[in-house]
């Protein structure tokens, strides 16, 4: 699971109103190469929840990879170094084993073999 996916997912248990961001527990992660595409990154940037991305990167031990405050889109247009860091955090870090924990209910969605299991139990739908 890449951090892009983490950024998109929330706990959707019935009645949960505050199921985002999911706390990332990473037991094992690897880095997988993804083709760098600046246009894609600039296009997806406004849709990313920046604090959630920073938090997820920290959960993998990257404390300084990204600035805490979301950069201005104009900075992203000119700062190639920052764009590459964003690329690495968003697309290349891949969590193999771990879990996603709902901030409201503490329900843990397991991640095994890189696949987050977001399916709900019968009493959660």
């Amino acid at each position: 699971m890449r951090l892009l996916t983490h950024n998109m997912l929330a706990c959707n248990i019935k009645g949960v109103t505050n199921g985002y961001p999911l706390r990332l527990e990473a037991e094992k992660w690897v880095e997988k190469e993804v083709d760098f595409n600046a246009d894609f990154l600039r296009g997806v940037f406004p849709k990313i929840d920046w604090p959630a991305l920073v938090g997820a990167a920290r959960a993998l031990g990257f404390h300084d990879l990204l600035p805490v405050d979301a950069p201005d889109p104009s900075v992203l247009a000119s700062d190639d170094e920052l764009l590459r860091r964003f690329h690495r955090a968003l697309l290349q870090l891949h969590v193999e084993e771990g879990g996603l924990v709902c901030p409201e209910t503490s329900r843990r969605f397991p991640i095994n073999k890189g696949i987050p299991n977001m399916l709900l139990h019968e009493d959660e739908v």
Partner: peptide, 21 residues
């Protein structure tokens, strides 16, 4: 290139955060 993400989820109850589009 590997998929960015594979996950188990239900198309009837997709786990996307609210506001994401």
């Amino acid at each position: 290139r590997m998929p960015l993400s594979l996950m188990r989820s239900d198309n009837n109850l997709p786990p996307w955060r609210s506001g994401l589009k």
